[in-house]
Write a protein that binds this DNA or RNA. Structure first.
Lengths: 342, 342
DNA sequence: AGTAAATATGTAATCGATTACACGAAAATA
DNA sequence: TATTTTCGTGTAATCGATTACATATTTACT
């Protein structure tokens, strides 16, 4: 078992004090050049490694940042985390992962745990806006720990966010469906308490109105992000007096379910019915009948969130600047809605 | 900005020493019951939070564990990490994520960084067996930090691992293809320096031999795990004198590419040609022509790796027990290879 | 040579919690 | 009552690094 070498060990060996060793290693200009070289050489020879915990305790900075997501095993969140890790790694930060599983209680708990662990910042996607975890959020802000929301945001003074323009995503997609000749476009909506879903819906609605189409409440079906939910939604929609001829789904999984159900009923896609999803999950482009979807550039979102964090950290004296970064959504048009190319 | 409350603050308020406060909070039996209650009540009232960094420095334990994976944005690794996090969270551990991007240099760097950060354990999937990062691994073991490999393992004395029986996975799949009537089965192989791919290949070979079929070198095409690689492989295979009538791919992505290329050539699947992949990526079951694949139960693998870690941590005095957990692969038979059900 | 200025290093406190050891007071025993 | 236990708490060292302040040594200048 290798001994743990401290600056005291180096000091002892060289008959100097730990203070001098510390200064030499930190390039303090007051240290004689010859001493510095000697210390550095000796430190290397003894295989000295700085104890990060001691440093963290002294400085109050752990060089860890916390990331809270509903779950990690979703392509979107995993990609965001990848972006965060890649951007922050060069700066010496380590990424701590926490999952909420959409539970506000877990979210609350994670926030406190991360603060306890003295992270230097928290990047997160909120779980639920209705529940009041404001205590936990306030606690973070009071501790002066930079807090940055990505994708699923929440309005809190002084908190920056990185999101995509979901409204535009919904608008573009709906507009595209209209352009393809669809006349009655339904929408599979997500949890309206989350802005992202609210905005996708609003974009959908606005696109309808801007293009002389009627918005009908009955065409909006709330779904969970699952294949089955998509199937059920189609079942409901097709029973309407005037069934729709297109679906803009706020979830790729629901879009997939919808497609499966439509096929089951021998409805031809995209000829008779067009479908578009949201998130650009990998499978959407792999399908034989590839699915039109909105890309949220998760990698870029993660990197951007990390950059916003880097801007805010260490600026405790400055008045905190609330930065709202909004990325542009990118509509990937594929077979499930491409009548023109057929 | 909320003050940071320490045990000294509590001590001062109650006119006792920090030692007593510490003991009271830690349920030390030597503390008078009345004192303990008073301390606990006061701590709560003052909103005291234990400083984890100080504790970590004193105890040498950070309550963090490091996870190193090639990349996080792959369904498999993300699911493993999910399993790890869920299993370790109740025990108070936080999970630090590192990516190698298949670079041995990054792997090396990550290992040292995690040790520097005083993690209490490292769970990882190795990147490459050929490169000698042995120094870094030895460093981990010398520091007495539990090291556990999952999926991609490496033979190092005293290191436990959690893997699936890749040999069996390859064997079962190949056997299945044989049962479906395939006579010439090709294999898209992965990096043979990694045991997982080696074993999938060996399982494939053994199944052929056990069932009176001939093994041909030319039927084994090394591929990267990508759609394009699968397409190219098919291109090569179909130019052979005796082209195969089935493919067992060590990668789902390559299997997908193969299927796309076969369709391109109007070869009917599974009638004329069967295809099976490995990993059970989400898209394999979503496809209209769903793809037969081997499930590696990543969630379970992560949980198991975490459990092995929990068993090993804190047992520094005991002789380290090398534990090799091998999970059973599960073949999911789908349309891409199901002649019987058609 | 004598003093000021510059340079290099040492001393000791600090970050916050834990804990071996010491000690005084109360309770138990002789 | 004297002595030993037991109990509860205080003292101070420790984990490893940083740093304000003090001090010693050189160098520069009159």
């Amino acid at each position: 078992m290798s001994e743990k070498i401290t600056i005291y060990d180096i000091a002892e060996k060289l008959n100097i004090t730990a203070a001098t060793v510390s200064r030499a290693l930190n390039n303090n200009p007051k240290i004689k050049e010859s001493t510095r070289e000697l210390v550095i050489k000796t430190a290397a020879a003894m295989n000295y490694k700085q104890n990060k915990l001691a440093l963290a305790l002294k400085s109050g900075r752990s060089n860890n940042i916390g990331v809270i997501v509903p779950r990690i095993d979703s392509n979107f969140f995993a990609s965001v985390i990848r972006g965060i890790e890649e951007e922050l790694h060069p700066h010496g930060y380590q990424v701590i992962i926490c999952q909420t599983h959409e539970s506000p209680k877990r979210e609350n708990e994670n926030l406190y745990t991360l603060i306890d662990a003295q992270v230097d910042g928290i990047l997160m996607s909120v779980t639920d806006v209705t529940t009041e975890n404001d205590g936990a959020f306030r606690n973070v802000l009071e501790k002066n720990v930079p807090l940055i929301f990505f994708d699923r945001s929440k309005h809190i003074d002084g908190v920056s966010s990185v999101t995509i323009n979901d409204f535009k995503g919904g608008y573009l997609t709906t507009k595209h469906l209209i352009n393809e000749g669809c006349r009655c476009i339904a929408h599979l909506s997500g949890d309206q308490s989350l802005e992202i879903f609210k905005n996708r819906f609003l974009g959908y609605k606005q696109a309808l109105l801007d293009n002389g189409m009627i918005f009908k409440e009955e065409y909006v079906i709330p779904v969970k992000s699952s294949v089955d939910a998509g199937k059920e939604a189609v079942d409901i929609l097709l029973q309407l007096e005037t069934p729709p001829d297109a679906i803009f789904s706020s979830s790729d999984f629901a879009a997939l379910g919808a497609i499966q159900e439509l096929k089951e009923r021998n409805i031809s896609i995209p000829k008779e019915f067009c479908v578009a999803g949201f998130s650009n999950e990998p499978f959407t482009k792999f399908m034989e009948l590839s699915i039109t979807s909105v890309d949220q550039s998760p990698l870029e979102m993660g990197k951007m969130a990390a950059r916003v964090f880097l801007e805010q950290v260490d600026k405790t004296d400055t008045i905190k600047i609330e930065k709202k970064v909004v990325l542009a959504p990118e509509l990937h048009i594929r077979k499930s809605s491409s009548r023109s190319t057929i």
